Simulated scan of single mutants.
Amino acid sequence: MRVVRVIGLTCAGLLAAGAGFYGWGRMDASTAQTAAPPPPVVTVANPLVRKVTDYDEFTGRFEPTATVEVRPRVSGYLTEINFRDGQIVEAGQALFVIDKRPYQTALAQAEAQLAGATAQLAFAEADAKRSQELVKSSNIAVATHEQRIQQRQAAEAARKTAEAAVARARLDLEFTEVRSPVRGRVSNRRVDIGNLVVGDGASTILTTVLAEERLYFVFDMSEGDLLARQQQAGGSARGAEGLRVQARRDGETAWPREGVLDFLDNRLQAGSGTIRARATFANADGALTPGQFGRIRVPRGEPYDAILVPETAVLSDQIEKVARVVDDQNIVRQRKVKPGPIQPGGLMIVREGLSKTDRVIVNGLMQARVGAPARPQPGAIEPAAAPQS
């Protein structure tokens, strides 16, 4: 009887243990199922579609539209300097004055010689007129009359010579005031008052004036860029002249200056395979200085509808660029894309690989796994605000 009771208790214990192990196993599976992580939350948005224009960028230099070396046209000692180094001077403004006295004396002498030549001509004309009456009455010889006509002609020539000498003396006197031929910014004086300056062939450089109200931007364009401009202009490189272009100085991020492409050289440089080009920009505020380096961008083609996504939404996968999207089943997919240039506001043009209806992941890329589900949250793509200076 005792043996039977022990066996019964042993069986009951085994059954209880089995039931406990079974219940623990079910609880473990249920707990594991409950602890499985949910799909990650990602922010998705349709690409932004905007009209954009593609540009080619070049490096060049701002140059003045006119550079003038101010030189004297007569020799003498400087008596006046009528400008401050570096100031803006007007066209026709007298910058230097050379001692006028020798040239005033020369003018007075030339005018006196002109008066003498005028009197001599008047006498010769009267003498020739009298001889004409006398030769009719045979009171003088014909040869004498012809001699007096020749004397009149010589007096006329002498008077013209004297008139030219007066004009030259007046010019020399006028040239004692050395004037700026253009409006612009003057450099520093090269000669001080009291120094002798030499005119004409071996003339002294007194200063320089740069016209800077409008500036040229001079740059070199490759043969490939020239061909692109020709295609854009219908086959003629000259058709590119007149294109609206934009420029900026080194250190600027925006393109605040608009100008016009107004010149292409007449040949490519054989050594470099480039052609010289030039655009003109307004500089009324004087913000640009001749000689500064800068960048210019020239439009390539007409504006078109471009697909734009944040630059951060495009990843590198070895040598390829990819973007991640969420499909209709909320599964993360990866798309190979062909990126274009970066636009203002941190947006990138995507030329191939995305459509305007795709739900592009713009936030949460690190949590999204390709081929796995995700929980998309709607967002929007907007250009980033420009940093305030």
Results as ranks from 00 to 15, higher is better:
Val3Ala: 13
Val3Thr: 10
Val6Tyr: 14
Gly8Ile: 14
Cys11Asn: 09
Ala17Tyr: 10
Gly18Tyr: 09
Trp24Phe: 11
Thr31Arg: 13
Thr34Asn: 02
Ala36Thr: 15
Pro40Cys: 06
Asn46Tyr: 03
Asp54Arg: 15
Tyr55Gly: 00
Asp56Pro: 01
Gly60Tyr: 00
Thr67Phe: 15
Val68Arg: 08
Val74Lys: 08
Thr79Ala: 02
Ile81Gly: 03
Ile81Val: 14
Phe83Lys: 08
Asp85Cys: 07
Ile88Met: 04
Ile88Pro: 00
Glu90Cys: 02
Phe96Leu: 11
Lys100Ala: 14
Thr105Met: 08
Glu111Ser: 14
Gln113Val: 11
Gly116Lys: 14
Ala119Ser: 06
Ala119Phe: 01
Leu121Ala: 05
Phe123Ala: 11
Ala124Arg: 11
Ala126His: 12
Ala126Met: 14
Gln132Ser: 12
Glu133Asp: 12
Leu134His: 03
Leu134Pro: 00
Leu134Ser: 04
Val135Phe: 02
Ser138Glu: 15
Asn139Ile: 11
Ile140Leu: 14
Ala141Tyr: 00
Gln150Trp: 04
Gln150Tyr: 04
Gln151Ser: 15
Ala155Pro: 00
Ala158Lys: 07
Glu163Arg: 08
Ala167Cys: 03
Glu177Phe: 08
Arg185Cys: 01
Val186Leu: 02
Asp192Arg: 13
Asn195Val: 04
Ile205His: 08
Thr208Asn: 06
Thr208Cys: 03
Ala211Glu: 12
Glu212Thr: 11
Phe217Ile: 05
Phe219Lys: 07
Glu223Ser: 12
Leu226Asp: 00
Gln231Ala: 03
Gln232Val: 15
Gly242Val: 07
Leu243Gly: 06
Val245His: 00
Ala247Tyr: 05
Arg257Thr: 00
Glu258Met: 14
Glu258Gln: 14
Gly259Thr: 00
Asp262Pro: 05
Asp262Asn: 13
Arg267His: 06
Arg267Trp: 03
Arg267Cys: 03
Leu268Ala: 07
Gln269Ser: 11
Ser272Tyr: 02
Thr274Val: 08
Arg276Gln: 06
Arg278His: 05
Asp285Pro: 01
Ala287Tyr: 06
Gln292Asn: 08
Gly301Leu: 05
Pro303Arg: 03
Ile307Lys: 10
Ala313Pro: 03
Val314Asn: 07
Leu315Lys: 02
Gln318Met: 10
Lys321Phe: 15
Val332Pro: 04
Met348Tyr: 04
Arg351Ile: 04
Arg351Asn: 14
Arg359Ser: 13
Val360Ile: 14
Val362Glu: 01
Val362Asn: 01
Leu365Gln: 07
Gln367Asn: 08
Arg369Leu: 15
Val370Gln: 02
Val370Lys: 01
Ala372Gly: 04
Pro373Lys: 12
Arg375Asn: 15
Pro376Glu: 10
Gln377His: 05
Gln388Pro: 05
Ser389Phe: 10
